[in-house]
Amino acid sequence: MRNEIRRLREEAGLSQAALAEALSVSRQTVNSLENGRYDPSLPLAFAVARYFRTTIEEIFHDDV
């Protein structure tokens, strides 16, 4: 699943570690999310959207 996490993070001037700390996940999880290797749970997807003050639909895109 494609997502806009890397773009949003870089626009916010955050490191992966800083975003990971804010979301209470590991830096590897943020890296995996950005590279599309790991699809987050619904609670984590909501947490990401809430953190960037946007919606899940604006961040995550179905590949189909």
Binding site: V25, S26, Q28, T29, S32, Y38, L44
Partner: peptide, 9 residues
Amino acid sequence: GTADERDKT
């Protein structure tokens, strides 16, 4: 015991 959801997966 500080695993996040990816670690648990």
